[in-house]
Nucleic acid binder design. Structure first.
Lengths: 191, 191
DNA sequence: CACTGTGAATTCCTTCACAGCG
DNA sequence: CGCTGTGAAGGAATTCACAGTG
């Protein structure tokens, strides 16, 4: 669904008012029955003979993904990767709001990254009262589990983990992991 | 398979000489029959009653993934994300060798990142004679397709794309795409 | 005896074809 | 008439169960 939302957002900006499943298929590189199945799974958005109304369908997908309400996220780790992510404009499209940055290095605390002040990692518990439910973990691998534990203690519900390790978390917490090296590791096989 | 390689590499460093499918299962968070199926698909590595010999199996997976020979990779885009990736130690585990960095900004050309000099993007064609077959694309979205085209022209066979767009490439070129925002976009749904 | 390798059963996901509606 | 929504067919990937082996 995030991929569809991306496509609908683009079409919105381009001012197109309707889109058919086969048009969409070209854009997201899937086939049209797949798209119809996926969208119909969450309800019927389209009008037969015409296609999907771009703006309303985009809005509905946002509601489904809970992206209609602005989602606050905390970034943990203001190293090179963390800094890159903090400055990434792609989050805006999905309505994310980077609400806090934490790091343990004294030289970084107090400085601003992408307009947001870096706080000490000891203040990580404050996400609870600040109503931040999502975290992006961009710390060295040895620190990942410890940071995750603190975040969960502080009531975090979802973690995007950028370390190449599996986080041990309770079932109620959802983790998505990205390891750039592992994705690259699959490439040589196909040459 | 890259995930298994990661696990075997870790076990190698820890000095364990044999591992059973169920032990592995815990580590990579899959079930044991799955692991046996996956490994047996490429041949029989294990000894019944004992498990898989860590070092030899690791080496075999490296061969399968063509990671036994050092793979050269070029980084295109020395922005914040590119810089972060260049300094990422995770590539070493898979035997990748960052052999060149390209950027179009005059202020960066000539400087060194992670010990590698930044070259002008106009020199991108040199990857052909330098026998670089892989590229990591960390450029702004508008530049992604153009850069990909130049890379393919220069004989690149695999691209790791970090822009939130679909690259149009000939069939012989393999593309792996990562969009951090899209992964994060799925999280709120699960809360 | 413990653990691998693998056919068979199951489940899941995708593709197809078309009925139904604007 | 065009395109969605969907049951039914087909295919792929997981899971199971157990025979086979060091």
């Amino acid at each position: 669904m995030p991929r569809y939302l991306m496509a609908f957002s683009l079409l919105e900006r381009q001012g197109q008012s309707f889109v058919s499943s086969s048009q969409l298929a070209q854009q997201v590189h899937l086939n049209s029955p797949q798209i119809r199945k996926d969208l119909s799974y969450f309800g019927a958005f389209g009008t037969r003979g015409v296609g999907y109304p771009v703006a309303p369908t985009g809005e509905q997908i946002r509601e489904i993904l809970k992206l209609d309400i602005r989602q606050k996220a905390a970034l943990v780790g203001a190293g090179r990767l963390g800094t890159a992510i903090a400055s990434y404009p792609g989050f805006r499209v999905f309505g994310f709001d980077l609400a806090a940055i934490f790091d343990n290095s004294a030289s970084k605390i107090g400085k601003k990254i992408a307009g947001i002040p870096v706080e000490s990692i000891t203040r990580i518990g404050s996400v609870k009262t600040r109503r931040i439910h999502l975290a992006i973990l961009a710390v060295p691998i040895d620190a990942a589990q410890t940071c995750a534990d603190s975040l969960i203690q502080a009531g975090i519900r979802g973690i995007l983990n950028l370390s190449p390790c599996w986080l041990k978390v309770p079932k109620r917490v959802k983790v998505v992991s990205i390891d750039i090296a592992m994705e690259l590791g699959a490439l040589p096989y196909y040459l």
